[in-house]
Design a protein around this nucleic acid. Structure first.
Lengths: 182, 182
DNA sequence: TACCACTATGAACGGTCGTTCAAATAAAGA
DNA sequence: TCTTTATTTGAACGACCGTTCATAGTGGTA
């Protein structure tokens, strides 16, 4: 998983995987069928980790907006820690996976949709207590946040991009979720 | 360029390029030095095209906000036309290019920064006439728009993602640029 | 027409890719 | 302890990778 995360699918070879797992080709193929199998399993592992993290960050009893902020704070923090700038394996996969292999794209997409759904219920909650704007449906706001996450993942790779994601997050969350008085 | 755009750098082979250009290896190498040279040239060609398009879409005498809207309308329209879902070559490159080849990442990043700068001056103009919010610096708002563009490029690859980018764009532009009355 | 500088051609190279499989080793059952 | 069943091993395969280069061909000049 780490290898695919760092180098992407195409730049990771079976030899790399063999060295990293200390499994010889035969064992690797017995366990995973083929290279795509290893990748699929890696996506699964990553997705389960993401799920756990999302549950922990978006859970709790704080106000919905605070929990969302906590999530994005963690994202910004993580981006700065990410010295290899590997970004998010699922986002990378969505971009790298060719259009002619839709099942991989779907797998990455579904894992991300879980996050989106989690955002949506949280936003709906905030809309009910008035702490989040109700001009637009919760689903739309959730999708906009997801787009923001994806965008940050790319922006982090821009020259000096990391220097600005903090303010981008603030602008995005405030602009998208804050109650509007017009 | 089309090949790299559709398949990415790693999945495009010199054989593919030879067939597409109808240039034999020797000629290809004489003209471009090597595969990376072809790619660099492709990035350049793409960037010049983007530049032209940005100039045309963001130019004119309409209100700044309308010109920005025109740009995003075009982006949404283009995404729906993009049957192969190739997205943006520069964004794809930013994600696919490994961290250990920074000059390619930089080339893609600089081309995108041109768009960002264009946004920034336009936003500053809108801030002066009050049609765009002034709570945050134009540079920050421009970066947030860029993040939105990048995010849409990814979101388009989500399952049914294309069905929602219209509303995402509206939410993003409105939330980011509209004057705030608090 | 004869020469020359230049370009195009495509076979060939060493290397790496994903994958297979017969043989060696280990584990389990009798 | 001996036989049987799993698992591990790593050499080997054909295909394709990016790249090179001797050779053939072309267009311009004298």
């Amino acid at each position: 998983m780490d290898l695919f995360w760092s180098r992407g699918y195409n730049r990771t070879s079976m030899r790399d995987l063999k060295d990293a797992t200390r499994l010889n080709p035969g064992s690797l193929y017995a366990a995973f069928e083929n290279k795509q199998g290893v990748f699929t399993e890696s996506l699964g592992l990553y997705s389960r980790g993401l799920r756990r993290e999302v549950e922990s960050l978006l859970g709790g009893n704080d106000a919905p907006l605070d929990r969302i902020r906590r999530f994005f704070d963690n994202l910004v923090e993580g981006s700065h820690q990410d010295k290899e700038s590997r970004g998010c394996l699922l986002v990378n996969t969505l971009i790298e996976a060719p259009a002619d292999e839709p099942e991989i794209r779907a797998q990455a997409g579904e894992a991300l949709q879980y996050v989106e759904r989690r955002f949506e219920t949280l936003i709906a909650e905030g809309q009910r207590d008035g702490s989040i704007q109700s001009q637009r449906p919760a689903a739309t706001l959730a999708r906009t946040l997801m787009t923001g996450i994806f965008g940050m993942r790319v922006y982090s790779r821009m020259p000096d991009g990391l220097d600005h994601i903090r303010e981008i997050v603030n602008t995005l969350i405030d602009g998208t979720l804050a109650p509007r008085t017009n």
